[in-house]
């Protein structure tokens, strides 16, 4: 009975996911597309739960609920304000007659031309069909679970995913941190941050809620980080939670953003990558190899790297949300 119910749950969930994704991509109103995408992230977290991946569900919860939605909504606001500015004209520039069009297009996308329907559909169907066929014919394999299980003793932690992330495949995680940092450098190379034209809601409600939520978020982030050594949790999830808390602060802040001074900010952003690399290089000389640790030192080293990585991920996510170099940082 409960097996059958689980199957029904899966089918309803997947139908919902596909339906939401389809309506999202078919929207002409961008705001509607964004709200549907937020819902998509929620359903996705449920799907990860059903696939026995609570770690991923945790990360999806923090990123889907806290970061992506806010990022998309604020991008829409930026596009709208750019369109308004163009229509009105700026002090150094007369109003742009095409501005009215731009205003229309900033938050609406006209339905796509009929001409592209057949080629796009057939291409997507062929690709999807090939993938489905390949997946159905793929033989069942045990995967790497037994191998990981066998080596858990030397990993220094009790949670297999943390062991894979920070020990067995540490180079993946190291490069991942580097990529996140590079994304931030890319965003910073585009210029200084745009001050959002909108104001936060006046009144005591939002500050009061923040006073409750931000401390709880910090405690939860630290708890998730600590839990990572023996249960679902770890640096990525904790970093995402703390990053979301930072984004909440940025959003609620009137006008001026609470940017950290330049040097500590940069140190914090690079702490994860830097410490990881430093410990990895030390491992090359006195340990088993590059990015490897001696088993008896593994636990403390992993904890140190995780703390630094959490800090860096959280700061980077907030900086990516602000999208732009801190003001007064040029020379």
């Amino acid at each position: 009975m409960s097996n059958l119910l689980l199957v029904i749950f899966d089918l309803v969930l997947l139908a919902g996911l596909l339906g939401v994704a389809w309506r999202c991509l078919a929207s002409t109103d961008l705001f509607r597309a964004v709200v549907l995408f937020i819902t998509f992230g929620l359903l996705l977290a449920l799907a990860w739960v059903r696939l026995e991946a609570p770690d991923i569900a945790l990360a999806e919860a923090a990123i889907g609920a806290g970061i992506t939605g806010a990022l998309l909504l604020v991008t829409l606001e930026r596009l709208r304000s750019i369109a308004v500015e163009r229509r009105r004209g700026r002090p150094d520039q007369p109003p742009d007659p095409a501005g009215a069009d731009a205003l229309l297009h900033a938050l609406h996308d006209p339905p796509p031309p009929r001409r592209t329907f057949v080629p796009a559909l057939s291409f997507a169907l062929v690709v999807g069909g090939l993938m489905v066929t390949a997946l159905w014919h793929q033989p069942d394999a045990v995967g790497l679970e037994p191998v990981v299980d066998e080596h858990m003793g030397v990993s220094g932690v009790d949670h297999p995913i943390t062991a894979v992330l920070l020990n067995f495949r540490a180079y993946d995680t190291f490069l991942e941190l580097a990529i996140v940092l590079i994304a931030l450098l890319g965003a910073w190379s585009l210029g200084r941050y745009d001050r959002l034209p909108a104001r936060p809601a006046p009144g005591p409600i939002l500050p009061g809620t923040l006073r409750l939520l931000v401390p709880v978020a910090i405690v939860t982030g630290v708890y998730i980080l600590w839990a990572g050594s023996h249960a679902p949790g770890g640096a990525f999830q904790a970093g995402a939670i703390l990053g979301a808390a930072g984004i909440l602060l940025v959003l609620a802040r009137p006008r001026d953003l609470p940017m950290a001074p330049s040097t500590p900010l940069r140190l914090g952003l690079t702490a994860g990558v830097g410490l990881f690399l430093a410990i990895g290089i030390v491992g090359l000389f006195i340990g088993p190899g590059l990015l490897g640790y001696p088993p008896e030192w593994a636990y403390p080293l992993i904890i140190v790297i995780e703390i630094a990585a959490t800090l860096s991920i959280a700061l980077t996510l907030v900086a990516l949300f602000i999208a732009g170099r801190p003001a007064g940082d040029d020379h």
């Binding site: 809601a201 009144g203 409600i205 939002l206 809620t209 409750l212 939520l213």
Partner: peptide
């Protein structure tokens, strides 16, 4: 708390 705040805003 979240529901109250969101509804108010």
């Amino acid at each position: 708390a979240a529901g109250t705040t969101a509804a108010h805003m």
